[in-house]
Simulated assay, not measured.
Amino acid sequence: MKKDQLLTRLLTRRRALIAATGAVGAAATAGVITTVTRDGPVTSAPAAGPQARPVKSSAYRLQPVTGYGPPRAAPRRTLVRREAQLKVSGRGRTMVLTFDDGPDPRFTPDVLDTLAEYDVRAMFFVCGEMVAGGRKLLARMADEGHVVGNHTWSHPLLTRLTRRRIRSEMERTSDVIEDAYGERPEWFRAPYGAWNRAVFQIGAELGMEPLGWTVDTLDWTTPGVRTIANRVERGAAPGVVVLSHDAGGDRSQSVRALRRYLPELLDSGYHVTVPRRHYA
């Protein structure tokens, strides 16, 4: 075969291949099946079953290589503080009510009922060992919009523990809160208000802000319903954080005092709510 004839045949086969490729694209758009053979494209009827929509070739290039979901946001960073927050920021006459040491099936439901009656949100700093028997109460807190914070597992004096023990107390509690409440806690409070550098560092590593209090009702001393209510009402001011208890002993006085001072605060124009995190 001469050189010119060989070149002509190669060009002819190349044109046929290009034409066949175009036919395949057109057939796919039309919803038919095309097979390319040695003698050229052969078209047949569509296969039975649902047909996929044609996708432009450029669409494949737009898909991310690692997956189809949105890119992950960078993790939010928590500052290591040197002291706990004692007040919260907010517009107008904003206050925060907090309850420690629970949940307790004897008193926590009454606290939640009173808060629900006045459509108020509060914070509950819970102990991990108490959550083990009160998971339903944490689920209710989540449903009703309350914030659950970390108050360690067994309520120890953290400043006397090693870093390993401190982390265990806090991390185990965060785990059980996430399981019962649905989210990991973003706030923690040291038992007895005893803080040190290790506590602040480990809390920040676990993604939590330290929150103290402005007004201590001292309700754990059972001073009487009127005394507890008076301490809250006299200490009321914008940004104030009130400390009470819903567990750790007989908290019936705390429950009755809440029923007394909560409507008084609302009638005085206070907005009782929960704080928001401010990330670095």
Results as ranks from 00 to 15, higher is better:
residue 211 L to N: 04
residue 73 A to H: 07
residue 254 S to C: 14
residue 69 G to L: 11
residue 257 A to Y: 12
residue 43 T to S: 09
residue 14 R to Q: 07
residue 207 G to Y: 00
residue 77 R to P: 01
residue 16 A to I: 03
residue 248 G to N: 06
residue 155 H to Q: 10
residue 213 W to C: 13
residue 213 W to Y: 15
residue 183 E to G: 08
residue 279 Y to K: 00
residue 126 V to C: 08
residue 211 L to T: 01
residue 28 A to L: 10
residue 241 V to H: 03
residue 193 G to V: 08
residue 120 V to C: 13
residue 252 S to P: 02
residue 248 G to W: 02
residue 135 R to V: 02
residue 44 S to Y: 05
residue 87 K to N: 02
residue 249 G to S: 11
residue 197 R to K: 14
residue 174 S to D: 07
residue 199 V to H: 03
residue 59 A to Y: 09
residue 115 L to P: 10
residue 129 E to Y: 04
residue 234 R to A: 08
residue 6 L to K: 10
residue 2 K to V: 09
residue 273 T to C: 05
residue 69 G to M: 10
residue 135 R to I: 03
residue 87 K to G: 00
residue 164 R to A: 13
residue 167 R to N: 06
residue 244 S to A: 15
residue 177 I to M: 04
residue 264 E to C: 10
residue 213 W to T: 13
residue 151 H to E: 08
residue 264 E to T: 15
residue 220 W to K: 02
residue 108 T to N: 04
residue 5 Q to W: 13
residue 248 G to P: 01
residue 264 E to P: 01
residue 85 Q to G: 04
residue 242 V to I: 15
residue 156 P to W: 03
residue 101 D to H: 05
residue 163 R to N: 07
residue 197 R to S: 14
residue 182 G to M: 14
residue 46 P to Q: 07
residue 211 L to G: 00
residue 158 L to M: 15
residue 6 L to I: 06
residue 228 I to V: 14
residue 175 D to T: 12
residue 210 P to G: 08
residue 7 L to I: 13
residue 105 P to M: 11
residue 47 A to E: 05
residue 200 F to H: 13
residue 128 G to I: 01
residue 186 E to I: 00
residue 23 A to S: 12
residue 72 R to C: 03
residue 106 R to E: 14
residue 215 V to R: 06
residue 140 R to P: 01
residue 217 T to F: 12
residue 183 E to D: 15
residue 21 T to N: 11
residue 216 D to Q: 09
residue 84 A to H: 05
residue 67 G to C: 11
residue 2 K to P: 01
residue 96 V to G: 00
residue 119 D to K: 15
residue 172 R to L: 05
residue 105 P to S: 07
residue 58 S to C: 02
residue 239 G to M: 03
residue 123 M to L: 07
residue 171 E to Y: 00
residue 101 D to K: 02
residue 24 V to I: 13
residue 270 Y to E: 04
